[in-house]
Design a protein around this nucleic acid. Structure first.
Lengths: 226, 226
DNA sequence: ATGATAGTGAACGATTGCGTTTACTAACTA
DNA sequence: TAGTTAGTAAACGCAATCGTTCACTATCAT
């Protein structure tokens, strides 16, 4: 695997795109880019990186194998592009859900439901599986992924709790530990079951129920923690 | 991968071993069997099944490649043998720790420490990583592994809690849910960090601290749950 | 000693899949 | 129309690895 987490070689900064529009010649088909990433995600996350053949991805994307190599240059680089796309969408989701609402419980539930819907999505479960393997082989990547993924997620929740504590809405020793506890209660045993393919992905209702129960337990825990 | 979870073809029932001792000919070297499994575990759990070469395992075990094929016949079968060995040792551990002790907290802590020491061991973390990938491809295996692994673990803890509830040592709606909560609090965020190779495995002291904190929170939760 | 099984080392055929090259067509600019 | 880039299809060289076979040695029971 590669040692970097960088974008594909051909990717241009959004602003530079205007400066270097079409130096002449046939323009790239933007749909192909998406098609490749989509197919790569599906294949990579299903069979694992090592077991995935570039040619299969090409075929699945309706694209020539050479096109993939021209655009991404490498198998590891293609994989990193897929991972980056996924983590970006997670960041977007976390920003989108500002955890607004009337009381604390409602706010937490909103945050938790959005988060679990993302974490328990088959695509994400698969990615975590594959990525864990990859990170074990390349320790350098682990911290970088963790920072933009689970770490960011915990910190954001921790911030929500911290604010609530300042407003006197709950008592809390350490917002960071609190966030970890809340996340653990939300995910619970189901997390393991999804990862091991014992259960099929949950629907909205099941997620809402999990989150509600978890939030309730967490708040009960805080009341007694003063 | 293979579709079954059965022992290697050559394995004999323990009793039959006396009946069919040595029909003549050179006896098998029992040390080689262990050496192969040990090497296979190391290689499989480090690089993944697909990326592991039988020849490397053979070399690492100080054994000829043909010997492996003669004994296990197949790569998937070898992998299954390794997994079986691991789950067996987990069952042993769970039976060994009967969760005995003076008060409930001590008993739970004893159980939790033994369990986490096993779950957070690098070998087990690696196996769960690799296995998750394999189970995703072969759903039939998932339930069978879950039953002898995490499922058994949860049920055993659930039983401990249930008994305690009957003795009036704690109040509990559903021992099964309680067990899941307690497990979640014990594992916490650290579980994810180990799986993603962000943190190195914990020592006894760290485990004991995690477990103590988790147990405390859980018991606090139960007191308020009546 | 004889026959049988276990084990080794080396070579083999077959397959797979990476990444490249070649020759060709398609789309766009000047 | 000429020049340039994007894309395709097919074939190639190359390395890895599976699972097998062969010839040979080692270790046991009778």
């Amino acid at each position: 695997m590669s040692e970097k987490f960088s974008p594909p070689v051909d990717e241009q900064p959004p602003e530079a795109a205007a400066k270097t529009p079409h130096p002449g010649g046939r323009p790239r088909d933007p749909e192909k880019h998406q098609a490749i990433l989509q197919a790569a995600r599906k294949i990579f996350f299903t069979k694992g990186v090592a077991a995935s053949a570039i040619e299969e991805i090409a075929q699945h994307a309706g694209v020539s194998k050479v096109t993939i190599y021209n655009r991404f240059g490498d198998k590891p680089t293609l994989f990193e592009a897929v991972v980056k796309e996924q983590t970006d969408s997670m960041s977007e989701m976390l920003i989108g859900k500002k955890a607004e609402g009337a009381d604390l419980k409602t706010r937490l539930n909103g945050f938790g439901e959005a988060l679990l819907a993302f974490l328990f999505h088959p695509d994400h479960v698969s990615m975590e599986r594959i990525l864990a393997q990859d990170l074990a082989e390349h320790p350098g990547l682990a911290d970088r992924f963790f920072a933009v993924g689970p770490g960011q997620c915990r910190d954001r929740l921790s911030h929500v709790l911290s604010e609530a504590a300042q407003r006197g809405e709950l008592t809390l020793d350490d917002p960071r530990d609190g966030a970890e506890d809340l996340l653990s209660l939300w995910k619970g045993f189901a997390d393991l079951e999804f990862r091991l393919s014992v259960r099929s992905p949950p629907d909205k209702a099941e997620i809402a129920e999990r989150v509600a129960l978890g939030t309730e337990k967490f708040l009960r825990l805080c009341e007694k923690a003063d």
